[in-house]
């Protein structure tokens, strides 16, 4: 199941973020983020009960992702509808879909920056046609013309 889940994670991440799989892989963050979402390694601050609840929630989420992808293989607009209706509401799977989007766009999981690379690879900077402040510097004078 683990491998399968990791594939599902990449698949659904692309649909949730609007970045294709190659673009997401290019950040080098796929594995880290999958582990973050699946809570591997497990957070020492969580109680066993919380961990179990989280694990169950993540399991339900991936099952749902799996069926959404299977059911809507051929119809893009139905796929979008299914994601909007079954994954995006905050009430669905503890808002996991929204958390995954935030993770990819900002590099943060909850109140924390996952790690330095997560900050640097935040998709929001790319979306802004800019770069993360303090990293991926664009070079002298680059700001005086529109993005390349």
């Amino acid at each position: 199941m683990a491998n399968n889940r990791a594939d599902l994670f990449l698949e659904i991440s692309a649909l949730l973020t609007g970045f294709n799989k190659a673009e997401l892989q290019g950040t080098g963050m796929v594995a880290t983020y999958y582990n973050t979402v699946a809570n591997i390694p497990q957070d020492p601050n969580y109680s066993d009960q919380e961990l179990a609840a989280n694990e169950a929630n993540v399991g339900f989420f991936f099952e749902e992702v799996n069926s959404i992808l299977k059911e809507n293989k051929k119809d893009e607009s139905k796929l979008q509808q299914a994601i909007a209706g079954r994954l995006m509401p905050l009430s669905a799977y503890n808002g996991l879909a929204q958390s995954i989007i935030t993770l990819w766009y900002t590099g943060s999981w909850g109140a924390n920056v996952v790690n330095a690379q997560a900050y640097i690879q935040g998709l929001m900077w790319d979306t802004a046609e800019a770069h993360p402040p303090g990293a991926k510097q664009p070079g002298f004078g680059s700001w005086s013309f529109p993005p390349l």
């Binding site: 649909l15 609007g18 970045f19 994601i83 989007i101 802004a128 046609e129």
Partner: peptide, 11 residues
């Protein structure tokens, strides 16, 4: 928003 629409909105 999510997916392409979110990306466009943010851009």
């Amino acid at each position: 928003l999510f997916g392409k629409q979110l990306r466009d909105y943010l851009n």
